[in-house]
């Protein structure tokens, strides 16, 4: 019995790490490149989840098919929010942008609660409950699919950042903004694009989460906090670092849930405090974009 719980825990942690990586990667590029701790990240994730919910409930669109739609809509939203709102204070100290994204989060959550009510809702396609067993370990299909889609999206982002001109311009801007300008990189557009990517990734994560778990307007905050802790764990702005941080965090979360169920909600904060005490630069070492 003990060993079954242990094996199931490992499977659950691996599945969770994929989603967390997707949540954290968008948070990480915005933090690493724009130097914004984007507290609205989880709110965008929540909106992505609701887009999927409504497309499914009103139009019967399969939740996996709604992934590109939710990401595209939130990409545009993210672009506009950065270009015409955050850009106004981008030169301001970190605290100002921090507060602005905090306000943004509250507004989005309040609007969502107003229009969609605070109830828990679920996206329930026919295949929602299906899965397969490995011995006695249960693997739900939707979570497995979400895991692989998360890996693919993270991989695509890595390819985009490494091998395309625009991706290189984004990284260059994060490393040395004056030098990037001297190569002809337009900073406002690059910032808006980066924020749009972060927002789209959050929405994609929201879509995938909504297929496996119930959603409500306040669901995002816990993900913002986890993304923050994962970035601290993995080192800022490095995609492999974020992947590693996500795996470590997912295992801690799942197993602390098994062994110390009463700590479940505090675990992200506990990990954060521990990391900051033991290794302030994160376990993967130095920030990459700076």
């Amino acid at each position: 019995m003990e060993s079954l719980q242990f094996t199931q825990g490992i499977v659950n942690a691996i599945l969770l790490s994929g989603t967390l990586a997707l949540v954290a990667i968008g948070f990480s590029i915005v933090w690493g490149i724009l130097n914004i701790i984007n507290l609205a990240h989880g709110a965008f994730l929540m909106v992505g989840a609701y887009i999927t919910y409504w497309l499914f409930t009103l139009y019967g669109i399969d939740p996996f098919l709604s992934l590109p739609i939710s990401m595209a809509i939130m990409f545009v939203v993210g672009y506009l929010v950065q270009r015409y709102l955050i850009n106004m204070v981008i030169r301001a100290p970190l605290l100002v942008t921090f507060l602005l994204t905090f306000a943004l989060e509250i507004v989005i959550i309040n609007l969502a609660t107003f229009f969609w009510k605070g109830d828990l809702r679920s996206v329930t396609p026919d295949y929602a409950g299906l899965g397969f067993s490995l011995g006695n370990v249960q693997v739900p299909y939707v979570r497995l699919a979400a895991f692989f889609i998360s890996l693919i999206l993270t991989g695509l982002l890595h390819v985009f950042m490494t091998y395309t001109k625009t991706g290189n311009a984004i990284r260059a801007t994060g490393m040395d903004i004056d030098a990037a300008r001297l190569q002809g990189v337009r900073i406002p557009q690059t910032y808006a694009l980066t924020y749009a990517l972060g927002t789209a990734l959050a929405a994609g994560a929201g879509t995938l989460i909504s297929i496996s778990f119930p959603i409500d307007p306040t669901m995002g905050g816990a993900y913002t906090l986890r993304a923050f802790v994962i970035c601290v764990l993995g080192g800022l702005g490095s995609i492999p670092g974020v992947m590693m941080g996500s795996v470590v965090f997912a295992f801690i979360e799942v197993f602390s849930g098994i062994w110390f169920p009463s700590l479940k909600d505090a675990i992200a904060l506990l990990v954060l405090v521990l990391v900051l005490i033991v290794r302030p630069s994160g376990i993967a070492g130095k920030a990459f974009y700076h």
Partner: peptide, 10 residues
Amino acid sequence: PQGRHLFAGM
């Protein structure tokens, strides 16, 4: 530019 200003991580 003075000081090279390379993109150190690239």
